[in-house]
């Protein structure tokens, strides 16, 4: 699974643009969005839990973070804002469709400003 995902991401962004975190794969750290933490009310502790993930992401120097699931997306998005990194956090499906040239103007909520206007599919349908 981990290698399949890397194959897909590299195919989308180009081998040279994929940067793995350290540590990675099964040694990687949980972002803190799972296990019910998002709904637990322990928000301060949840952000503290996620500090490690935020630091890992910043250390890559990458422009974007791709999240594999919805809870992770939600949590890492909050980490990006809270710790001031302000890196965009996107779903994998967004990047796949962007690379295929089939991402419409209303499917770009989480893209950063640098990609918002790039290769828009049916731009005339923007709402």
């Amino acid at each position: 699974m981990a290698e399949d995902l890397r194959y897909i991401v590299k195919s989308i962004v180009g081998e040279e643009n994929f940067i793995d975190m350290t540590p990675n794969r099964s040694n990687n750290y949980c972002c803190g969005g799972g296990g019910g933490f998002l709904q637990s009310g322990f928000n301060e502790q949840r952000l503290e839990f996620g500090r490690l993930k935020d630091e890992q992401i910043k250390a890559t120097g990458a422009d974007y973070c791709i999240a594999g699931c919805h809870n992770c997306h939600d949590q890492i998005h909050k980490l990006s804002e809270h710790y001031g990194g302000n890196y965009p956090v996107v779903h994998l499906w967004t990047m796949i469709c962007l690379s295929l040239g089939i991402l419409g103007p209303n499917e770009r909520e989480y893209l950063g400003d640098d990609l918002k206007e790039v290769n828009v599919f049916h731009p005339e349908t923007a709402i």
Partner: peptide
Amino acid sequence: VWMCTLCQR
């Protein structure tokens, strides 16, 4: 116990 995300690392 509500702050462990059960990630299994």
